[in-house]
Design a protein around this nucleic acid. Structure first.
Length: 419
RNA sequence: GUGGGUGUAGCUCAGGUGGCAGAGCGCCAGGUUGUGGUCCUGGAUGUCGUGGGUUCAAGUCCCAUCACUCACCCCA
């Protein structure tokens, strides 16, 4: 064993990979049911897109990006998140010139150069939903509900929704100034003092107890909202209540990306240790303009597939191994193997999941393979059966076995499995 | 970037004070020359992370190094 996967890159092998697909499917189903269309965007983009979109002051941009020069000397960056790329694609192709909102979902890997730990990876898998071109608080609530329903569909019961608002460009500056005045008077380390000047809101989110104690009396955004932000926030909460989606008001919640405005939220799972955020999102009404586009509001979320898998496992929801196939072929001898190979192909074409034993495996080993595959039926074919023109079809669970003429095998099995 | 922990079979891990490298699971074969899941018997697989040092002798002690892992920070 000479090579190993790059540091911080998780791999999902069977049977655990089934959970990976289940997580993606749960969220994709909800997004599709809610009228969102799939969009496939690049894994890397112009570095400047992320610098301007995500924000020059963020840790993501300043120290976590996988940036490289391509052979033409352009600075490219592996996507650290999806929203900037989805917005860029929307603007470039004029999707926003049609009826609004533009409702999109996507999924795949994102990349951040960080020190790995439990639930934190350098290649992380996200599932994203974005609604572009709407200010309606109902869409804020809709996107939250999609994420919530995804967690519910997976059977997760411990997920918490932490909800906040960050105000808009009307009311946030005054709050920001008030918060800075408060924070400058505190006894904080140098890095945190620097943060006060760049992004003071994030100081509120500091988890260190000595910092938390000091910011306990800090002014809160919820006391500084303008009338329209307050109305927006109240409406979002009313609609969530109508849907029966529970949340906790968390006025200190801040997100690490600069583009967020108004509604912001995070989904949290208590069984995950330090990296407990399993999803997060909000409104980004200024993003389009930040990257050179027109004034175009948007709202959306990202959920972390890797961490949701950990949550599913923490709640012990991922135990049953799904059967790989419904029918498993057990050949005895070369002639039988050839004939069975064709029969298995025909079963697959008829929509029946099928596999067979290879490498001239003996009967015992092949039957063991049938057992491991989870197949409902084993089809045993040897010289005797070939001579008789039939195969032995064995129901694995009951052990009942009957001879079925080779010409009727596909139809019979398809019928029995459907019935 | 800063701290702590751990590296022994495919996996999970035992291996006081240095003395022939082990168990369980998994895998393969046989018991059953055409029948899996239970049971019984047998078998294969190791540069003991890597390099150096001490010693008659190192998985064990010392030094270095790499990897993994947890936490800070940050975020999905």
């Amino acid at each position: 064993m000479t090579f190993q996967a790059p540091k911080g890159v998780p791999e999902y092998l069977p049977p655990r990979s089934a959970t990976f697909l289940a997580v993606r499917t749960a969220f994709a189903t909800m997004a599709l049911n809610s009228g969102y269309s799939y969009i496939e965007v690049p894994v890397f983009e112009d570095t400047e897109l992320y610098a301007r979109g995500v924000g020059e002051s963020t840790d993501v941009v300043t120290k976590e990006m996988y940036t490289f020069a391509d052979r033409g000397g352009r600075s490219m960056t592996l996507r650290p998140e999806f929203t900037a790329g989805v917005m860029r694609s929307t603007l470039e192709h004029g999707l926003h010139n049609g009826q609004l909102p533009v409702k999109l979902w996507t999924t795949g890997p994102a990349f951040r150069y960080e020190r790995p730990q439990a639930g934190r990876y350098r290649q992380l898998q996200q599932f994203n939903v974005e609604a572009i071109g709407t200010e309606d608080p109902a869409v804020d609530a809709e996107t939250i509900a999609i994420a919530w329903s995804g967690y519910q569909a997976l059977g997760l019961t411990r997920v918490r929704l932490l909800l906040n608002t960050l105000g808009c460009k009307q009311c946030r500056p005054a709050y920001r100034a008030a918060l800075q005045d408060f924070l400058r008077a505190l006894d904080l380390d140098e890095a945190t003092r620097a943060r006060i000047e760049i992004n003071p809101l994030r100081v509120l989110d500091d988890k260190r107890p000595e910092v938390q104690a000091q910011v306990a009396d800090a002014p809160l955004i919820t006391d500084h909202l303008c009338a329209s932000c307050k109305a927006h926030h109240d409406r979002v909460r009313t609609l969530l209540e109508d849907l029966g989606v529970p949340w906790e008001d968390t006025p200190r919640l801040v997100r690490g990306l600069d583009y967020y405005t108004r509604t912001t939220y995070e989904f949290d799972h208590p069984l995950l240790g330090a990296q407990s955020g399993i999803g997060g999102g909000g409104r980004y009404d200024g993003l389009s303009e930040d990257i050179g586009g027109p004034s175009l509001p948007g709202v959306g979320f990202a959920v972390g597939v890797d961490r949701i898998i950990l949550a599913v496992e923490a709640e012990d929801l991922a135990r049953e191994v799904p059967p790989r196939v419904a029918v498993y072929g057990v050949p005895l001898g070369e002639e039988a193997a050839r004939r069975l190979f064709k029969l298995v192909h025909e079963l697959r074409a008829a929509g029946v999941a099928a596999d067979m034993a290879f490498d001239g495996k003996g009967l015992k080993g092949a039957m063991k393979g049938a057992d491991r595959s989870g197949a409902v039926y084993a089809v045993i074919l040897g010289e005797r059966d070939l001579a008789a023109g039939s195969a032995q079809v064995k129901h694995m669970e009951s052990g009942e076995q009957t001879a079925v003429p080779l010409g009727e095998l596909v139809g019979t099995l398809a019928g029995r499995l459907a019935g």
